[in-house]
């Protein structure tokens, strides 16, 4: 019941509403029972499928009914079984299923079931031998994501599906997705989802890592190193955001990651230079916006780092000020301050 306004008592218990709801419940139960009965009996005829589609259009979370459709579609899409090797039929069935899903997703763009089912259909659809139209199929899926991400730029289901589609899409380079994140960030730099995707894509676009990490194996993607010019650009981008609005956390969380990444992957001299520059930036922001939380916190952290700019005394002052100005997180600031003495 996310975001649905609570009814007044009078409205909730009005005779009209109670009767309406009672009738709706009865009809719903009837339809649901009819669908589950067909599923139990394994009636995979067109009529049953159409009926089930009708119920799913109203309540797309009924995962069992999607499963039933998968059972029905699987041999068709995999060109197996009695249904034979009819590719045209497979394409038609897949397209029909995608149309149903699109209707469901328009109604409920955050349904785990629907997104999963769509993935399942698209994966089999693109695996069909007539892969000539793969690109257009996947382009269309990216287009659907564009549309839904315009309606809700933070829909993480949709972002995830987009990554899935791009992973299937051979013609889609991570660079073009990086451009997409830049576009979304330009539209609204509070779009944390876009910053997040950007952080992952940067490592995808710059597949450099240290020899030591390569030898160590494991989670190499996590350890990839961003080259200096990329870091410069990202620092510049994020700076535009927090100067425009220093209260926006997306940019600051991204900045914290960039600083951490520099500290972890660069030489001592490089770290020193970068931290020096960032300290100067924070001082400038604080000159325009004295007492602003994020630049103070950022500065405190920069000054806590073991560089030539290290100044634990000032860092403590900043943390102590923050504990007063941002009392909700006073516990964190106190712990951060205490950690400076360790």
């Amino acid at each position: 019941m996310h975001g649905q306004k609570r009814l007044t008592k009078e409205a909730r218990y009005s005779q009209q509403r109670l009767e309406q709801r009672k009738r709706k419940a009865k009809l719903y139960a009837e339809l649901s029972a009819a669908c589950l009965e067909r599923r139990r009996e394994g009636r995979r005829d067109e009529e049953s499928l159409a009926l089930i589609a009708k119920l799913l259009e109203m309540n797309c979370e009924l995962y069992t009914l999607w499963n039933f459709r998968k059972e029905h579609l699987e041999p068709i899409l995999k060109l197996e079984g009695d249904d034979g090797n009819d590719e045209a039929r497979a394409v038609e069935a897949a397209e029909k299923e995608l149309a149903l899903l699109e209707a469901c997703l328009q109604r409920n763009p955050k349904s785990y079931c629907c997104w999963q089912h769509r993935k399942w259909v698209v994966e089999l659809h693109t695996a069909l031998p007539s892969s000539a139209h793969d690109a257009s199929l996947l382009d269309r899926e990216v287009g659907l994501c564009d549309l839904l991400l315009t309606a809700d730029e933070r829909n993480f289901h949709c972002w995830s599906y987009r990554r899935f589609v791009c992973s299937l899409h051979r013609g889609k380079e991570p660079e073009s997705e990086l451009d997409y994140t830049a576009e979304k960030i330009a539209q609204n730099f509070s779009n944390y989802s876009a910053w997040h995707y950007r952080s992952a894509l940067l490592k995808e676009c710059n597949k450099t890592t240290t020899l030591r990490d390569l030898e160590g194996g494991g989670d190499v993607a996590y350890k990839r190193v961003l080259p200096p010019h990329v870091l410069d650009e990202e620092f510049a981008l994020v700076k535009e955001a927090f100067y425009t609005e220093p209260e926006d956390q997306s940019a600051w969380l991204y900045h914290a990651w960039l600083v951490g990444h520099v500290a972890e992957t660069r030489t001592t001299e490089e770290v020193d230079e970068r931290i020096g520059a960032e300290v100067a930036t924070m001082e400038e922001v604080l000159e325009v916006e004295p007492g602003s939380k994020w630049p103070q916190l950022c500065l405190a952290r920069l000054l806590s780092m073991p560089t030539s700019r290290e100044d634990k005394g000032r860092a403590k002052e900043l943390y102590s000020a923050l504990a007063g100005e941002d009392p909700k997180r006073a516990g964190y600031y106190r712990d951060a301050m205490a950690a400076l003495d360790r």
Partner: peptide
């Protein structure tokens, strides 16, 4: 007309269910 909207959603869904069920008994 906020309240009216809520009512009309119930109403719309009820008649949707009615139509679907009717088509079942029909077939």
């Amino acid at each position: 007309k906020d309240e009216a909207l809520e009512d009309s959603e119930d109403e719309a869904e009820t008649s949707y269910l009615e139509r679907v069920l009717q088509s079942v008994s029909q077939t």
